[in-house]
Design a protein around this nucleic acid. Structure first.
Lengths: 269, 269
DNA sequence: CTAATTGTTGCGTTATACGGAACATAAACT
DNA sequence: AGTTTATGTTCCGTATAACGCAACAATTAG
């Protein structure tokens, strides 16, 4: 009928043009971010309303994005989804950010190891696994030795708990696919118990391991966040149960949280 | 139909070289792709020469990209590197593409299982691990049962060999970090032997497992490629050694390769 | 300290990207 | 079948955003 009406005001007409009208460069990027946010397939019209652009503009931008490989069209639905260039870009970004995280974090890990006298490590997300990415051995003769690159069992690793406590339910569930391995009688093997524990960890901001893997090893961990608020890593203090008592834990909470927070901040620039 | 003739001289008549002078939207995307390609930190001048743009233009584009979080500036070097938005985008793209791969592949996996009478599966890359992503059980009563979601030992898994044979040396080495576990006396435990084997697999286009993990289980695999030519998955046929003899292998090479190639093609759109 | 290299604004001009509507295609109804 | 609604793409003249230039900052080198 008269769908053209469109008497909607010229969007932030006057009023000191706070958000200056977007450049076309900004428009492409916002278009990409729209996909990043929703993840769904979307059509031209849907995108145009979502971004407040004209269909014609949207159509042209999409064409550009498809040519560059950032979007592709699902032939059956005729809608668009993220393409291989977006994937490649993210892969490179991930490597870059991880490298930067490692470089930035190491001195702080070292400082924490000196301060606490125990071994310190950083665990990082890799796909749907959590791996041991970096470590600094403590000054003591009796200390825990981390194994670089190891894929960690998420039910016992303190860092994994800290990371998952702040992760999206979606991601948590994909990590919970496999069976939990039992290492000893303290090991958590029930998925239900584990989910409850994550809530507790999130409330405290710290996760603990009191011998759930190796009976004589205790550990504690705090999450590191990327600029978008997503937890991508954790700092872990680990050592012999005889030294990592509850009183040690209490005294180490602040330094640990502080270290993790400092690393998170340093990533933002 | 051709009322407008549209013989308007679009840029081709321009003295300027190149097909069509890039739109600014294309410029931003190319700028991003430049980072995707090199991965290094880069400054304004370097980027401007690399892309054939003026410094001023490049500077403005970079500013836009930084605002949108696609780039960030390393304060110590003052150069730019990929930012959190690029990372998020890639993460979403990866989920999208994986979902699409699973959806597209399944019917072909099923077909191959019917055709060969054996269990068929697809392994996919996840971070620096290779996981079992999807499987179809064969019709026979005695068959191999895949374990969904399992992180596979790359030294024995046939699919892992197929994927790594075509992967970048960089990626291969990051996967080779940990120790190879020995399952039996056929298991490959030497990294050197493994690297040699990968070359052979690449030459043949197929990888085999003749009881390297479970002595009575044989398997073969062929890689699946994304549109950019990167191997992100593999199709695997597995079953009892008694049936997966060399003669079975010979007869299954073509169907297996064909299935993998068909899936790869279907992803391109 | 000067010279050289790299990075960031102003400004006037020109080409680029926009909005509107026609055109085209596909799905939804009867 | 035919008709209607929804969705997507192309064309064109015009306004404006983006460009190149060159001066200006800010570092680094000599």
């Amino acid at each position: 009928m008269f769908n053209d009406a469109s008497h909607h005001p010229p969007a932030a007409a006057q009023g000191k043009q706070g958000p200056t009208s977007e450049s076309s460069a900004e428009k492409v990027l916002n278009l990409l971010l729209a996909f990043s946010a929703s993840g769904r397939e979307m059509g031209t019209t849907e995108l145009s309303v979502k971004l407040g652009l004209h269909k014609s503009t949207t159509s042209r931008l999409i064409k550009t994005l498809v040519n560059a490989g950032f979007l592709q069209q699902n032939p059956s639905t005729r809608k668009y989804l993220l393409g291989i260039s977006a994937y490649q870009l993210g892969y490179t970004a991930s490597r870059t950010l991880n490298a930067r995280l490692l470089a930035v974090a190491h001195p702080y890990l070292y400082g924490l190891a000196q301060q606490t006298g125990e071994s310190v490590a950083m665990e990082m997300v890799s796909g749907i696994n959590i791996i041991l990415a970096s470590h600094v051995e403590g000054p003591s003769h009796l200390r825990f030795n981390f194994q670089q690159g190891e894929v960690l069992p998420i039910n016992v690793a303190a860092g994994a708990k800290a990371i998952l406590a702040y992760s999206s339910p979606d991601f948590v569930e994909s990590c919970l696919q496999g069976e939990f391995k039992r290492f000893n009688d303290r090991t958590i093997v029930s998925k239900e118990d584990y989910r409850k524990l994550l809530k507790q960890v999130k409330a405290e901001g710290i996760s603990y391991d009191r011998g759930e893997r190796y009976e004589d090893i205790h550990a504690m961990a705090a999450p590191i966040f990327f600029a978008d608020g997503s937890p991508k890593a954790a700092v872990i203090i680990a050592g012999p149960a005889s030294r990592l008592t509850d009183s040690f834990f209490r005294s180490a909470v602040s330094p640990l949280k502080e270290t993790a927070a400092t690393i998170s901040r340093s990533l933002d620039l």
